[in-house]
Simulated scan of single mutants.
Amino acid sequence: MELRNLKTFLEVADSGNFTKTAQALGYSQSAVTAQIKQLELELGVPVFDRLGKSISLTEAGKKLYQYAQEMLTLEQDALESIKNKETMSGELRMGIEESLVISFLPDILYYYRFLHPDVDLIVKVMDFKSMLAALKDNEIDLIYTLDRLYEKTDLARPRQLAEPIHFICASSHPLAVKESVSIEEIVKEPFIFTGSDVNYRLELEEQLAKRSLHIRPLLEVQNTDIICRLVSMGIGLSFVPECVSRSYVDDGSIKILNVPEVSISMYRQMLFYKDKWQTPQMKAMIHLLTEIDF
């Protein structure tokens, strides 16, 4: 029994006229007649008494009228319930690069929670390869990463922002007062590196290898904020995204070094599968990350 036929049945019962029903619903009169006939065939009994130009409900029609109203009310309640649930609650799963956590995640969480307080936001800190695998396995809905520009066509990339990667040292370090520093001077210094699989470290090592140079790290630390704290204490130099070191540069504890031979940028990118259905929760995060300059 189609809901469309029940809607037509209720309209005919209320208006008492097939022609008026056709006009109200935008159907031809023959379509209205066909829907009522289909309904009567399914029920096995007539729902209207037709006496000349006037029609009235049969006993079966009166019973159907009550059930039809309840069924259509239930349909409307179901639609509203599902729509409200998707816009006001539900879940969003997001992967984010570690380098972006300290600089951007607090603001992203604050604004998203302020705008959508009933959505459960699940954030996983992952490297880029792990994020792509989780995205493919539908374990997360979208990712916010810092990497080389993603050029493949399977993922949507609504926004990308270049993020310079800089050499940094403590403001008290002798190199901090120099207008420019050579890469040969850099590689002689104690160095605090990120993990060996971090994209901008790999890019730097590729450029150094072309010059037959190599940095042997004093320490390898996964957390970029800890790296900046160690650098500010004078323990060594490092190579990190500008967004990571910004607060330390602003408070004067760290200095960005000008190294003309090395110029590396990565891109802050939001990525998700083009063919994935975008839930209201996803659309809200996409809008947030594309419209607000974090």
Rank of each mutant, 00 (worst) to 15 (best):
Q29M: 10
S30W: 01
A31V: 10
A31F: 13
T33P: 10
A34E: 01
A34N: 07
A34F: 08
A34I: 05
Q35V: 02
I36V: 06
I36R: 02
K37L: 11
L39E: 01
E40G: 14
L41H: 14
L43D: 02
V45K: 13
V45C: 09
L51G: 12
G52D: 03
K53Y: 07
S54G: 06
I55V: 09
S56K: 15
L57G: 07
L57D: 04
L57S: 08
L57P: 05
T58A: 08
T58L: 08
T58H: 11
A60C: 08
G61Q: 01
G61M: 02
K62G: 06
K63H: 00
K63S: 02
K63Y: 02
L64W: 03
L64S: 01
Y65Q: 06
Q66R: 11
Y67F: 08
A68K: 04
Q69M: 11
E70A: 12
L72C: 10
L74R: 15
E75I: 10
E75Y: 12
E75C: 10
Q76A: 10
D77P: 08
D77S: 09
D77R: 12
L79K: 04
I82G: 10
I82H: 09
K83C: 12
K83L: 11
N84L: 12
N84K: 09
K85V: 15
K85T: 10
T87R: 07
M88R: 08
S89I: 10
E91V: 10
L92A: 05
M94A: 12
G95F: 08
I96A: 02
E97C: 15
E97G: 13
L100G: 04
I102H: 05
I102V: 15
I102E: 05
